[in-house]
Simulated assay, not measured.
Amino acid sequence: MSSVRFRRLTSTEARPHADALGELLAVCVAGGASVSFLAGLEPGRASQWWAGQLSADDGRAIIVGEDETGLCGVVQVIPAGPENQPHRGDVAKMLVHPRVRRQGVGAGLLREAEAAARDMGLTLLVLDTVTGGDAERLYARAGWVRVGVIPQFALSTDGRPEATTVFYKALAQ
């Protein structure tokens, strides 16, 4: 993982990355990643989805991992919207390209997301992930607290209902 660089995209840098992020999303979904999309996601449609995320004016942080080949990972930290939750955020759409899996990129993205959340003044993060998947083990190893499992929460990429595990992490300031 020494060749992977992590950085937070600024709003002006983010928009030109929509196509690369769309390709990353499409590759991950094609590989079975359950991240809100079903199999057959075309890179163009994935790029359009990312364009919407990148134009959101909600204070989110978008952190990418890049290596000599290009974009190899991404994660978002999205501040909670309600007035009574200014301290909380969601970790969303953490994606790691299959070519760099099991090389520490996911752990690096998660560390960077937590650091960005602290910079944003957030003290509590929440996320959900497919029960039994690699990401579930990653979050547990990184000190996230498992809240529980919701059965049949979403459809897998092939359309089967699957459970999700909810985690949270309190951040020291």
Rank of each mutant, 00 (worst) to 15 (best):
Q152N: 05
P82N: 00
H17E: 11
T10N: 03
W144T: 05
V64C: 08
R102A: 09
W49D: 02
A140T: 15
Q85E: 13
V91R: 01
M1G: 11
R101S: 02
G132E: 00
S3F: 08
G65L: 05
T129P: 06
V105E: 03
L24Q: 12
D67K: 02
L25S: 04
L41M: 03
T131K: 06
R60T: 00
R99A: 13
P79I: 07
A135S: 15
Y139I: 11
W50R: 11
L21I: 12
V145S: 12
V147A: 14
Q53R: 15
P86D: 01
T129W: 04
S36L: 04
A14G: 13
A51Q: 13
A20D: 12
L125D: 10
V91Q: 00
G73N: 13
E66D: 12
R60S: 14
E83F: 10
G52L: 08
R7C: 11
L124V: 11
P151G: 08
L171C: 12
V166C: 09
I150E: 15
L38V: 07
A46T: 05
L95T: 06
M94P: 05
G132C: 10
R5N: 08
C72I: 07
A92M: 04
F6C: 06
T123M: 05
D19T: 14
A172Q: 12
V130E: 15
V4A: 08
V96I: 11
D119E: 15
F153M: 04
R7I: 01
R99Q: 14
A61R: 14
V105N: 08
L127A: 03
K93I: 08
R101P: 00
V64A: 13
E23D: 06
A113S: 14
V149W: 00
E13H: 08
N84M: 06
E162S: 01
G104C: 09
E23K: 13
V96Y: 01
L171P: 13
A115E: 09
A163K: 03
D90K: 08
L171H: 10
G159E: 00
L125T: 12
D67N: 10
G133M: 11
V145W: 02
A140M: 08
Q76M: 12
P16A: 03
I78Y: 03
T10W: 04
P79A: 07
R8P: 01
T12S: 13
G40W: 01
G40A: 09
W144M: 00
L21W: 02
C72T: 13
P86M: 02
G59E: 12
S47K: 08
I78P: 04
V29F: 04
S3H: 14
L122P: 10
Q76Y: 04
V105C: 06
D19Q: 07
T10F: 00
D57I: 06
V100D: 03
D57E: 15
G106C: 02
A92H: 09
H17L: 10
T131S: 14
G22W: 13
P16L: 11
L155T: 08
S2D: 13
H97A: 11
S11T: 14
G133S: 15
A154R: 09
G159Y: 05
P82G: 00
S36H: 01
R160H: 14
T123Q: 11
P79Q: 10
V130N: 10
L9V: 09
G132Y: 06
P82A: 10
G44H: 13
R160V: 07
L138N: 01
T165W: 05
T12D: 14
H87I: 03
V29Y: 02
E68I: 01
V77I: 13
G44P: 02
